[in-house]
Write a protein that binds this DNA or RNA. Structure first.
Lengths: 145, 145
DNA sequence: CTTGAACCTATAGTTGCTAGAGGACGTAGA
DNA sequence: TCTACGTCCTCTAGCAACTATAGGTTCAAG
């Protein structure tokens, strides 16, 4: 049986984060010692490691909740888990594409400044005039409330 | 003079977001019509377009606040603006590197499932066992409160 | 002159934590 | 046995950057 601190160090998840996961129901309520301190089994360690790994891969807590409930029921078809992972992959690919475009633009912006005064500054200039921008970005909002 | 709705559609920023930017002081308080509705000048449109463009490039509102105060004062040296942009570029490059690694791993995960039951599901398997993972991720937490 | 879209304020909710206050527990040494 | 210190407990509030909701006003078209 591990204390919350040991569980934290062994999984690489901060103590308040573990309590938070319990609070939102991602982890079951832990057993308690005589003095009311949480005690964790090997199973809990595995579950938390799963969560942590999925978080590293960018899965939302909601997606992880779904994956956990799938893995709790190993006779189910695996299509649902696959779909979640594929959605995640699509997300990552789209973020990747956008970031690559941003990187290009930032590089152009930063290469050098024409002058040494703000009035000649390429950074400010590019940011102020979208038409200087090569890339196509999605809209931030769609206006109208 | 534009209403907030027109300003929103013309810049691609949602109406509540514009009000939010005013509230946190990124945009100056707008003039009001007789009926207390906000009215925007061309200057405000430019400023909001600048903000929006910078947000698209991933700059934080704090960074944008700094850039705006720099551009309000065009005789200052441009080094500070350059530094902000360079920091942003470094950020983007680091996110890009991590995302690329994640993509590889997700692809491996998704390629196909060995079986059609969860118990054989590669997605669940990979997430449950970090040692199946090739890439090096940063820790989510450093444990201990 | 009425309808309905667009506006107003104010407050609360979102995601995924993190930080702080104020106190109890647990263990090692004096 | 005492005491000190690290770890634990609960609870509440805060972070970014918005988004949503409630309940009311204004404005332009028909």
């Amino acid at each position: 049986m591990l204390t919350i601190g040991k569980l934290g160090t062994s999984t690489g998840v901060k103590v308040p984060t573990i309590r938070y996961y319990e609070q939102i129901g991602l982890l079951p309520e832990a057993e308690r010692s005589a003095g009311n301190q949480r005690l964790y089994t090997h199973k809990a360690h595995e579950r938390l490691a799963f969560i942590r790994h999925a978080r590293e891969l960018g899965f939302s807590l909601e997606a992880i909740r779904d994956l956990l409930s799938l893995s709790d029921d190993p006779d189910q078809p695996c299509a649902a888990a696959d779909a979640i992972a594929k959605a995640q992959l699509a997300e990552v690919e789209s973020r990747l594409a956008r970031l690559t475009a941003l990187k290009t633009e930032l590089e152009r912006m930063v290469v050098q400044c024409a002058g040494d005064r703000i009035s000649d500054c390429r950074v400010i200039e590019v940011l102020g005039d979208h038409s200087l921008c090569v890339t196509n970005h999605p809209t931030i909002g769609d206006a109208g409330q």
